[in-house]
Amino acid sequence: MLRLIFLLLLALSTFAQPRRIVSTVPGLTEILFNLDLGDRVVGVSEYCRFPAAALAKPKVGSFLQPNIEAIAALKPDLVLIIKNPVRLKQRLEAVGLRVQELDLETMPGILAAIAQLGQDTARQKQATALRSNLEQRLAAVKSKVKQRQRVTFLVGRTPQRLEGMVAVGPGSYLDELMRAAGGDNIFADSPAMYPKVSIEQLLARDPQAIFEMGDSVHEGIPQNRYREDVLAVWARMPSLRAVRERRIFPLNDDLYVVPGPRFAEAAERFFEMLNGGPAR
């Protein structure tokens, strides 16, 4: 009898678990796949490209502009969104959907999101394992940092030119990530989270390393050609210390710009680059 009740409870709990999940955020999609929930994902955003299996899922718009109709048509029992200023939660709930709003802007936020998702989907064990793995790797990176370096991360630039640059400012995920890996953002005092900067600030603040994702229209170009192109552009500004010391790191992998469970890997790579390793 006791066994029967136990089985019934088990059946009920599995029944209560969400079986059709829509994720509107790349980072949350990654967490879902990490928790072995890939099969339950029935819709993802246009920007969800990792892991490769996510590419095959139906698309429901982007994280700020999800297509509510398309989401509803997928009949999900859980919709995942990130904190946003456009009242997405209320709008999705208005059409009768169950919505979980999570914060991915900071590393603690990502860890909390993993725990929350583990709870929501009865994957507590995997979630705890993932969390402690990430925390250990991050702590390992932090402990290895001996000398701090002044760095900048460029997210935008006019193609082929050192003009129209947009850098990472304070309070952003990348700022936090670089700091963990031993890099101090030279634009930490900026009033904007993603300030428009010019070569003047780079010359004046002369960073020791430049992480460069600026040529954003460079798409579908192999990594090695992208590297060569970007380095050729910077070679024209030898007054910069980072150029003279060959510490320009061209990156074109969304690993660095998608806040999610790969943050430990990103921090490791930042650390490698800042300590003599090649850009990958």
Partner: peptide, 21 residues
């Protein structure tokens, strides 16, 4: 358009004078 190009467009539309080469 793609995310990268859409960002490039946003940046371009901000307009303004920059330290050009």
């Amino acid at each position: 358009t793609s995310l990268g190009r859409s960002l490039a467009i946003t940046r371009w539309l901000m307009g303004g004078v920059d330290s050009v080469e």
